[in-house]
Design a binder for these strands. Structure first.
Length: 569
DNA sequence: GTAGGGTTAG
């Protein structure tokens, strides 16, 4: 009875039947523990475990894996050690399932050292024990150690391969993830990818904005019948959105069956709309999610609020922020405050933003003051900018972007002495602004450009095209906006620096190497600059191209002389 | 009946 209810997911009935039994056996306890663990009631699992102990009921090899999983889910190494002790007492530490569960528990609680000790001590190990340890090293960013284990283990199954691929993805090693995936697909390979593998490799495409690669993997998952898996579909939505194709992202989202759309799927779509500046779509998607009976979480609100800020939906954003805890039961976190400061700041309501910060129930972090600082820059409020800057310099001294931002504001009003001071700080702390770079994928191959780069084989053609561009654009009535160039250099020099920004190089390369009418998709590691933004609008008109630029925090979709952001960014 | 890989975030 208990097992029947438990396996159908009806924990309530299972537990009430269980409660009515006067002398439950170990077997019965195991059964209820399994159910609690499977459905995420980790604390209940642990209390059952202690009850068993008090009643003097014996544990067996089936008890421990679930109890340890619950300790792992709770990230409680203390409980874990206590359970570990019990397993030692009855000599089950060396059971292959218990041993692997112990390794996994230590890994998930962040105690890699104990995990390793156990692994080394194990007399019999199987592929799962290795897999658990590999995942642990990947989680800690120790990719080399994970590689040594992976290639050194006696045999590898699909989980081993997937652990490596997802580890590479999570550590930002997209190229390694894709290479290993290719290796796995080779004819003579002993294993075939499953849905978890597909889901783990897609973020690597998203990370490197490799749209063609992503499409191929989508195609592949269709062929092997995995594209109807809702987690794969969610990963596809995220991949297409991050690779610059909102259209494909939306299509994939629509294909997820209504009852299969979970929190992650909705959040992914809301965030996708937000990053494209489609605030209204983000709001509507949020409302549909509520209508579908899915409870939003803090990520839903980050998406919703950032969507509002990116598209100027100031009052709507404020409305949601003000009722998120009362109506939706989600407590605002630091990130939400940062979003709302952004909402107010972009709209130029700087004093309200400052008041909000002053009234915050928690310590405002660097993201909050950073949002205010950025808003002060775009609305030219030096006085408030200095207040915000003083805070972020203390909270985040290593972030050179903040110094550059304030320095640019001083430069704009000709306060060169202050500019020099800030530049001196940057210099003496040995901080360097990370160099701007952009890349574009053509025929499935990524081409990377650094600002001012002349090393590319097609550098001459690219620069010829760029040389000709100002005349074409000026003929269309455009004046280069030099306020985005740094420092007190001469006007001509400024204009030259702007001309060779990496996003312009990548776009010129794209124009040269694709047929007319082909959409160009460029990714940049920093924020797009205002001059490039204006220039690209003209390029889209003059050359009749759609151009999608993904910068560090959002997308710009240029078409026929204007941008999807409506110049609100 | 047991373990190991998991998508969403400015």
């Amino acid at each position: 009875m208990v097992a029947m209810y438990a396996s159908s997911g009806d924990l309530h009935s299972a537990f009430s039947v269980f409660d009515g039994i006067t002398e439950p056996s170990s077997l019965l306890y195991n059964s209820i523990i399994r159910a609690f663990t499977r459905y995420g009631y980790s604390k209940k699992t642990l209390s059952c475990f202690f009850q068993m102990h008090l009643l003097g009921l014996g544990f067996d090899q089936f008890t421990f894996p679930f109890v340890l999983k619950s300790c792992a889910d709770l990230s409680s190494v203390l409980m874990g050690k206590c359970v570990h002790g019990q397993s030692l007492r009855i000599g089950l530490e060396s059971d292959i399932y218990v041993g692997t569960s112990l390794i996994d528990m230590y890994v998930k609680c962040g105690d890699l050292c104990s995990a390793r000790k156990l692994f080394d001590k194990m007399i019999i190990r199987d592929v799962s024990s290795w897999n658990a340890l590999i995942a642990g090293y990947m989680k800690e960013g120790e990719t080399r150690v994970a590689e040594d284990l992976f290639w050194g283990m006696p045999n590898r199954n699909v989980v081993s391969w997937t652990a490596m691929i997802s580890g590479y993805s999570q550590n930002g090693l997209a190229g390694d993830a894709l290479n290993l995936f290719d290796e796995m697909l080779k004819e003579d390979s002993e294993v075939k990818p499953n849905w978890v593998t597909i889901m783990s490799v897609l973020p690597a495409c998203a990370h490197s904005a490799a749209l063609e690669r992503g499409r191929k993997i989508h195609e592949f998952s269709r062929r092997i019948g995995l594209d109807s898996n809702s987690s794969v579909q969610t990963a596809l939505v995220a991949m297409y959105a991050k690779c610059g194709s909102l259209v494909d992202a939306r299509d994939c989202f629509k294909k997820i069956h209504r009852s299969e759309k979970n929190l992650a799927s909705w959040n992914t779509m809301i965030t996708a709309y937000a990053s494209y500046g489609q605030g209204m779509e983000a709001v509507m998607t949020f409302e549909q999610m509520i209508g579908a009976g899915v409870q939003p979480d803090y990520i839903s609100f980050i998406g919703l609020l950032s969507g509002c800020s990116h598209s100027g939906l100031t009052d709507i954003g404020l409305k949601y922020f003000n009722c998120m805890s009362t109506v939706y039961n989600v407590e605002p976190r630091l990130e939400h405050y940062a979003c709302v400061v952004d909402v107010l700041g972009r709209a130029g309501r700087l004093m309200e933003a400052k008041e909000l910060i002053d009234g915050m129930p928690m310590e405002p972090g660097p993201s909050v003051w950073g949002a205010l600082l950025a808003a002060c820059r775009s609305h030219r409020n030096l006085e408030l900018a200095e207040i915000a800057a003083r805070k972020v310099f203390v909270l985040e001294p290593e972030n050179c972007g903040n110094y550059v931002l304030l320095s640019n504001m001083y430069a704009e009003v000709g306060m060169w002495k202050e500019v020099d001071v800030l530049r001196a700080i940057l210099k003496c702390q040995g901080m360097r602004k990370s160099p701007g770079c952009s890349w574009i994928e053509i025929n499935g191959k990524a081409h990377l450009f650094l600002g001012g780069d002349r090393s590319h084989p097609q550098a001459r053609e690219i620069h010829l095209l760029l040389e000709a561009l100002p005349e074409k654009i000026k003929a269309a009535g455009y004046i280069p906006d030099t306020k985005f160039a740094l420092h007190d250099v001469s006007e001509e020099e400024k204009e030259h620096n702007l001309k060779t920004h990496s996003e312009k190089l990548a776009i010129s390369f794209g124009l040269l190497n694709t047929g007319p009418g082909v959409t160009l998709r460029v990714t940049k590691n920093l924020r797009i600059c205002g001059d490039c933004h204006t220039a690209i609008k003209f390029i889209s008109k003059i050359y009749g191209r759609e151009i999608i630029v993904r910068d560090v925090n959002r997308f710009h979709h240029f078409r026929d002389g204007s941008c999807s952001c409506g110049d609100y960014w």
